[in-house]
């Protein structure tokens, strides 16, 4: 029998596991960016209460909030190939259903997921901007779009950053589910390394430390961005 806990093995397995870090970061980054775009559009639809689209947006958010991340990944993973197949049959196109890399499914699923949460954050941040700001824009004859773009959105960004930071961290953690659709991310790599040595506990300690560091760095960076976005609120001693 070896040691109960092997710290040397643990430290030695860092490099092996870190090989999968770029995949995890890539998935997190790309889905965050796409998620932000989705969120921007959806929050605008909800904020402006655009007919027909607004209830659809509401249903989308409700569905994403009400279903587990893992189930959403499965729906995308199995659903999109069926969808492509149906299109091929109907329109005689030749999309290669098997040619879509798993990572694309992961990114689509996570972006749709993050987009829903972020859109709610953005909408409530827009609503949190003092209504007097919009009135002041109107009083000097700015249009609604000019007001949003130049006064309301810049102020909403400062309000939105702390909750957006939370969503981003949830997204980073949710990438640990993509091993279920055969992507070698940090989590899958840990399983591989762990099954070679049977020292699973050490390996998962390593993985947890890596996630922790990523999330801490992201939270720190965004807190700096927040300070910058709210620079106009800072009181200066005279």
């Amino acid at each position: 029998m070896g040691k109960i806990f092997d710290p040397v093995f643990m430290i030695q397995s860092f490099p092996e596991i870190l090989k999968a870090l770029p995949i995890t970061l890539f998935i997190a980054f790309v889905s965050a960016v796409i998620g932000l775009v989705i969120a921007f559009i959806v929050s605008f639809i909800r904020y402006s209460n655009i007919r027909i689209l607004s209830p659809i947006a509401k249903a989308y958010i409700s569905f994403i909030r009400g279903t587990p991340d893992l189930v959403q990944i499965m729906l995308v993973y199995y659903g999109i190939p069926l969808f492509l197949k149906a299109i091929n049959e109907k329109f005689g196109t030749a999309f290669d259903v098997n040619g879509v890399p798993s990572i694309a499914f992961a990114i689509i699923a996570l972006a749709i997921n993050a987009g829903a949460y972020m859109s709610e954050t953005m909408r409530s941040s827009l609503l949190a901007v003092d209504s007097g700001q919009l009135e002041a824009c109107y009083s000097v004859n700015m249009t609604r779009l000019q007001a949003l773009w130049r006064v309301i959105i810049p102020q909403a960004i400062g309000i939105a950053i702390p909750p957006l930071s939370n969503t981003l961290i949830s997204l980073i953690k949710a990438t640990s589910l993509v091993f279920t659709i055969s992507i070698i991310d940090l989590m899958a790599q840990a399983k591989i390394v762990g099954s070679r040595s049977f020292r699973f506990f050490e390996i998962y300690v390593v993985v947890s430390i890596i996630y922790w560091v990523i999330c801490a760095v992201v939270a720190f960076a965004l807190s700096k961005v927040e300070v910058h976005a709210k620079r106009y609120e800072r009181k200066v001693d005279q």
Binding site: E135, A136, S139, V151, E233
Partner: peptide
């Protein structure tokens, strides 16, 4: 709106 302008009770300056 182009004809008039308003001074508000709570100033409503653009905070940003």
């Amino acid at each position: 709106r182009g004809q008039s302008s308003m001074v508000f009770q709570h100033y409503n300056l653009f905070k940003n």
